[in-house]
Design a protein around this nucleic acid. Structure first.
Length: 631
RNA sequence: GGAGCCGUAGUUAAGUUGGUUAUAACGCCGGCCUGUCACGCCGGAGGCCGCGGGUUCGAGUCCCGUCGGCUCCGCCA
């Protein structure tokens, strides 16, 4: 490079830095997505727009990976002059390219060319071609980034959530949200094609202290009165059935002011549907069609036409949980009768006092270390178990702290009931039924993971990755020992089974409902029921739930009123869209499928909501904050 | 309400028994570089060790509290 040329270039670089104004888009329009440029475009001039993924500046040659939602394409900047009449002459384009940094937004015109021999990049969709840039516009510059825009970025989730606008540029999140769009469109199309009408229900609605805590909205027009954000459109969709719409659906936000989990956000999205003149099988059948359509459209996976069924009692009895993971066996076996007279007091006394003793057998797990067993015991304890007895079945018999309490006959009978072979590990839960089932059910899942029976990453390209099961026939009520009253297991509008109607009066604890949950890979992804359409039955259920006449009429008066004006038998279901998606993409957290999720303290790290408000706003709403502001 | 894990440059991490000037990688800034694609090479800047208190001659390190993130129990009809 001559001194003169060096001087000219230095001048250009100085000019590029000095100039503060960015280029205007002008009449440039993109001709295609960066990630969609292909070999068929070779030879043609394209206009591309996107973000600078990475710059590889060789001093002479400069390579830029330009990114948009479809992918990357390599731009090449040559120092040679470009064609006449371009917005920058060739040297200008090249010099300008030196100033490019990560996440600058560019518009370029250039010729698509086949890459020279040996420089193709097979790991890139567009790796056979590159774009030789003749004209460049810098539409926007960017500050140094808090983290790399990259699928395997190493930044923590809190950093990413604070800069969610950058996080969302990562291809993996772009793809998740595109999948979300596909799922939601497929659901809409299926439901619409099957006669369901999309009808909106209010977001400002009535607080119903039953169930989850409400998010409340103060009413300026009505001092001291509050709306609640809907926990679900439950009552409104039933009203729509009573109004004669016959089939309704909505993909809608629901709000619950409860503590968060990996699979629970304060606002989440339901695919909500309701149908008239149907029974449980009609709803389940129709929804199998919905789920099948969604998986086909969104993932290209052809599911079985119908899903497995388990009653609630079977699910809890065999798997310990009402959302069973049926991808593997290791079922719970009841040995209460066998241990009634055994020498181990923990077992015999539980058996004698109405509790249950159950066992699971982990194949080949006799090799588990003491540490692993302790870990499983700790796990069982978090679910209320007092401990977790274990037996390693070795060639020479039981290796176990509890071995000495059992006779040879008892051991043999237990092994047989448990289906245990030499080399297996038996784990026992002894407690009241709910505790023993839950604890063993959870231990079963932990061992399933440990033994690889639950795959670490599911294969979302085949139906084998997805294990659906309906859980039906839930109990109507469970008894709240603290408050000494019945609670609705599903919700207070769920219909009892026809054959159990009489039991409502005599033995409510034995009444089963027409409720059903859909479980996918051990996670509840949806649930619904046939509703009560007889006001007399509804009144009886309220009575059992200890909801008095006045209370019922003040909380649900409009529904009770509506029920008495000609109500079709009806029922429906709601799916957790976020949960379905997180399973589809193999994530443990629904935050990965929500554009702007909140932290465990229900805080948005990007917008910094919730926040304090100024006193004028409070005055308008007739509110006074009593919490100490800050100490 | 409770349990556990975590918090050190922009980011991710290391930091010994409590002991000189707190390391590294990536990123950033500057220079060189015409076939790279995690480009390469040379140089440089960058720190309230989350915050507050305590123990100590001395604290990133030990103790107490607190704030924040994550996971879980309770809660989520």
């Amino acid at each position: 490079m001559t001194n003169w040329r060096r001087f000219r270039l230095a001048g250009w670089l100085w000019f590029c830095k000095w100039r503060v104004s960015l280029d205007n888009l002008g009449d440039w329009r993109k001709s295609t997505w960066c990630g969609s440029v292909g070999e068929s475009d070779i030879g043609s001039e394209l206009t591309l727009m996107g973000w600078v993924q990475r710059r590889r500046d060789h001093g002479g040659l400069i390579f830029i990976d330009l990114r948009d939602r479809q992918g990357l394409v390599q731009l090449v900047f040559n120092p040679e002059p470009a064609s006449e009449g371009s917005v920058n002459d060739g040297k200008g384009v090249h010099a300008l390219a030196h100033t490019l940094r990560s996440e600058f937004v560019l518009a370029v015109k250039g010729i698509v060319s086949k890459r020279p021999e040996e420089t193709e990049n097979p790991s890139l969709k567009t790796g056979m071609i590159e774009v030789k840039v003749s004209e460049l516009k810098i539409l926007s510059s960017a500050n140094a980034l808090p983290f790399q825009i990259d699928d395997d970025t190493d930044a923590g989730e809190d950093v990413r959530l604070k800069h969610r606008f950058l996080d969302l540029r990562r291809p993996v999140l772009q793809q998740s949200l595109m999948l979300r769009h596909k799922v939601s469109m497929a659901a809409r199309n299926y439901l619409s094609d099957n006669g369901f009408l999309d009808i909106e229900t209010p977001m400002l609605t009535k607080s119903t202290p039953e169930g989850a805590r409400d998010f409340l909205v103060p009413s300026r027009m009505n001092a001291g009165h509050f709306y609640a954000l809907p926990q679900s459109p439950q009552l409104f969709k039933q009203i729509l059935m009573i109004s004669g719409f016959d089939r309704y659906f909505q993909i809608t936000r629901c709000f619950r002011d409860e503590d968060l989990r990996a699979d629970r956000q304060p606002e989440f999205t339901q695919i909500d549907a309701e149908m008239s003149f149907v029974g449980t099988e009609d709803v389940m059948g129709c929804m199998e069609g919905l789920i099948g359509h969604v998986f086909k459209e969104a993932l290209g996976v052809e599911l079985d036409a119908s899903f497995a069924r388990l009653t609630y009692d079977e699910a809890v009895g065999r798997f310990g949980l009402d959302a069973p993971d049926v991808r593997f066996g290791m079922e719970l076996k009841d040995i209460t009768e066998l241990v009634k007279g055994c020498g181990l007091k923990v077992f015999s006394s539980v058996a004698a006092s109405g509790g249950i003793v159950k066992v699971i057998t982990a194949e080949g797990a006799a090799s588990f270390s003491r540490k692993e067993l302790d870990g499983l015991t700790e796990l069982a304890k978090t679910y209320g178990a007092k401990g977790l007895a274990w037996v390693k079945l070795n060639a020479d018999g039981w290796q176990s702290p509890i071995a000495k309490f059992f006779s040879d006959e008892e051991k043999k009978a237990i092994e047989e009931a448990a289906g245990a072979q030499v080399g297996d590990l038996m784990l026992f839960g002894a407690d009241k039924a709910t505790v023993a089932n839950t604890a063993l059910g959870r231990v079963r899942l932990a061992i399933g993971k440990r033994l690889g029976l639950i795959p670490e990453a599911i294969d979302s390209s085949t139906k084998e990755g997805f294990s659906f099961v309906w859980v039906t026939d839930f109990p109507m009520f469970d008894y709240d020992e603290h408050e000494k009253r019945y609670n609705a297991v599903h919700h207070p509008f769920t219909s009892p089974r026809d054959e159990d109607m009489e039991l409502l009066k005599t033995d409510p604890a034995k009444v089963y409902s027409k409720a059903y949950d859909l479980v996918l890979n051990g996670q509840e992804i949806g649930g619904g029921s046939i509703r009560i359409h007889d006001p007399k039955v509804q009144a009886k259920v309220f009575e059992l739930l200890n909801i008095g006449k006045d209370e019922a009429s003040s909380k649900f008066g409009f529904l009770l009123d509506a029920l008495s004006y000609g109500t079709p038998p009806h029922g429906g279901i709601a799916f957790g869209l976020d949960r379905i998606l997180s399973i589809m993409i193999g994530s443990d957290s629904i935050r990965d499928v929500i554009a702007f999720p909140k932290t465990q303290k229900a805080y948005c790290m990007m917008s910094e909501a919730p926040s304090e408000i100024d006193s004028k706003q409070l005055e308008d709403l007739f509110l006074r904050v009593t919490k100490p502001v800050q100490t």
